[in-house]
Write a protein that binds this DNA or RNA. Structure first.
Lengths: 196, 196
DNA sequence: TTTACATACATACACCATGTATGTAACCTG
DNA sequence: CAGGTTACATACATGGTGTATGTATGTAAA
């Protein structure tokens, strides 16, 4: 079978990202040697260093794929809702659920900032999760739904709280109870922003 | 000069922690070889692996020293205030200021969770910053100052938001403006908890 | 279609960092 | 001061990263 170069590249890159994602999710970035990833992907380290500058480069590709998927899910949930308010609630629920998955937990919520540095991590997030949340809040503010606040700061603080909430649920002995608690706190915060 | 064994141990451990703290603050845990730390401390790696199980052990000692100092500062600021409410505000200010220092930024807010794992990191925090905040909120709740909420969850979410706020200020082009923004958001959240 | 080049890998190597095993000097106790 | 313990230093084994080099496959022009 005769494949074009682009096909070859796309194939091995996809295989590398998929293998790396699984292994990183299970044991974390540091604990996984590059060699193990490439073997799982059916290639050698030569392929890795051909397509990516270094191990971090591959990790970044994994993070971006994850974020893309995640944002898409949340945006879809938001889109299905009749109005903005219920959409926000639905989006929060989907996001919280997604954040309970091991890959999101370990890769996005734990390793990403430390491995890539906060600058890069922020840059990535701004184009995905944070970007979406900012848009939603901004439009809510424009429509007079919420009080006057600096939306970018608000969005980022809310996002960090939501992420922490997800970590708490994942680590809790009683996830259901913890989830109820954090949702109560977060819901209270959000409703306090509503214009009376 | 004849020194006791305890003195020797305490001296080298303090030197190691101090050297590690500086280097970790500047370049992060991963980028600093153990050998560089020990040289800066005037010993060899033998001393390190005698006093600590591994490099992580030393890092943990650094984190705990940092957290201890930080909590002490905040508690002192709180203690100087006439009442609980102004105390909370003063404490927040001191904490935000402290979080702007490079060592706190890099070691506590960036590396600690990834290097030690969230479990251990939480365990440490529970005895310091988070513990203090929880106590304060709990007493406020007991005195009927704030509404009925699950305090542990509230404390942890507030803390994560405050830490993110500190990171934002540190990374901002216009720190003063950013600080004003995040303080507005956080103050709004806190006042929304007050009983009317 | 053959020749020349570029792309996609594999193999082999040099380097560096961690942790451990072993040796030695300082201290402590009877 | 003799024996044992503690506090280190030195030497070594291991493993992981990144790079240099070699090779096969696809691509394009003569």
């Amino acid at each position: 079978m005769r494949r074009t170069q682009q096909d070859r590249s796309a194939g091995t890159k996809a295989a590398l990202v998929a293998a790396a994602r699984e292994l990183f999710a299970e044991r974390g970035y540091q604990a996984v040697p590059a060699d193990e990833i490439t073997r799982a992907a059916g290639v050698t380290r030569g392929a890795l260093y051909h397509h990516y500058a270094d191990k971090q480069g591959l990790f970044r590709a994994v993070v971006e794929q994850l974020e893309r998927e995640l944002t898409e899910e949340v945006a879809a949930a938001f889109g299905r809702a009749p109005d903005a308010l219920t959409g926000m609630t639905a989006g929060l629920g989907v996001f919280l659920d997604a954040c309970l998955r091991k890959d999101v937990q370990r890769i996005s919520l734990t390793d990403a900032p430390a491995v890539l540095g906060w600058e890069v991590w922020r840059e990535i997030e701004a184009e995905h999760g944070l970007g979406l949340l900012t848009e939603l809040l901004e439009s809510a503010r424009a429509n007079g739904l919420i009080v006057e606040v600096p939306v970018p700061a608000l969005a980022q603080l809310i996002l960090s709280a939501v992420m922490e909430a997800a970590r708490m649920i994942a680590a809790a002995e009683d996830p259901a109870q913890t989830r109820a608690d954090v949702q109560q706190v977060l819901a209270g915060w959000l409703t306090s922003l509503l214009r009376t």
